[in-house]
Simulated assay, not measured.
Amino acid sequence: MAGFTVFDVETPNRMSNRISAIGITMIEDGVITDEFYSLVNPETYFDQFNTQLTGIGSETVRNAPTFPELWTKIEPLMSCGLLVAHNAVFDMNVLKKCLRDYDIKWKPYARYICTVQMGRRILPGMSHKLNVLCDYYGICLDHHKADSDSRACAEILLRYLEGGADIRQFIRTCSFNK
């Protein structure tokens, strides 16, 4: 089994072009091996909706690293495994916009898997919201907290793989070219 970098981002506003928190859960050989979490100072405004949803506001991130400061720490993690996220199009696009807006060069593309898309094929006929799947599998979740969400997504992926899911049919590519 390959290595996976499961991640989740929280955003400060509806623009979805900045990160206010990131959670990363590493999987190697079918086992969660490492976890990383950080608040991120998005250097922009917070919508009330996002603050209520995540519990993160401008005061919370006042002393947090900015995305470029944090990227030097997380880039090795983000580069070492197949990326995975729940509703991955959202998380991949936020990552892409952050890299673009801060003029950070990364690789031209990244391969990723979406556990929502996997779930729709593996468990048809049910909701694939993260909290619903966590209830279904008995996974602890503190929803809309990036560390808890990334851990829950990792555990869902492991359940799918233990059930015999073939990831090859779910791999997609996100371009990071401008």
Rank of each mutant, 00 (worst) to 15 (best):
S16Y: 15
F49D: 01
P12T: 09
D91T: 04
K105I: 03
D147S: 15
D29R: 12
A152C: 05
A2D: 15
L141G: 11
D142S: 09
S16D: 10
T66A: 09
D47Y: 09
M26H: 14
P12N: 04
L161N: 02
R111P: 02
H143W: 00
R111L: 10
I19G: 00
N50H: 03
M92P: 11
G55S: 06
C134G: 01
A88P: 01
Y109I: 05
N50Q: 04
T54Y: 03
D29T: 14
V84F: 14
P68S: 09
V31M: 15
G125C: 14
L77I: 08
V84M: 07
K96W: 09
Y45T: 02
L130W: 02
D166T: 04
A2W: 06
T60H: 06
P124C: 06
F46N: 00
T66F: 15
W71T: 02
Q52V: 01
L157W: 07
L95M: 12
K97I: 14
H144I: 06
N177K: 15
H86Q: 06
N63Q: 13
K107A: 04
Q48T: 07
Y136I: 01
I156P: 02
T5Q: 12
V132D: 14
K178A: 13
S150Q: 10
H144S: 13
Q48I: 08
K178S: 10
D101W: 15
W106M: 11
G164K: 02
A146Q: 03
H144R: 11
F170H: 13
I24D: 11
L123V: 01
A64N: 04
T25I: 07
R14T: 06
R120I: 04
P42K: 14
D101Y: 15
I24Q: 11
D147W: 07
G164T: 01
W71K: 05
V89N: 15
C140F: 13
G163M: 09
L161F: 06
S38N: 07
P65H: 15
P42V: 03
C174Q: 15
C153P: 12
R120M: 13
E28R: 13
W106C: 09
G125D: 08
G164W: 00
K96L: 05
S20T: 07
M26T: 15
L39I: 05
L99K: 06
C114Q: 08
R14Q: 14
K73V: 12
P68T: 07
K73T: 15
N17Q: 11
A154T: 04
S127M: 05
N177S: 10
Y137Q: 00
Y112R: 08
D101H: 09
T51S: 11
L158P: 00
N87S: 05
I156K: 02
H144T: 12
Y160M: 02
F49K: 06
M92L: 12
D103Y: 03
A64C: 07
L70R: 12
V6Q: 01
L161H: 02
A152F: 05
L158R: 02
L141K: 01
F36A: 07
P124H: 08
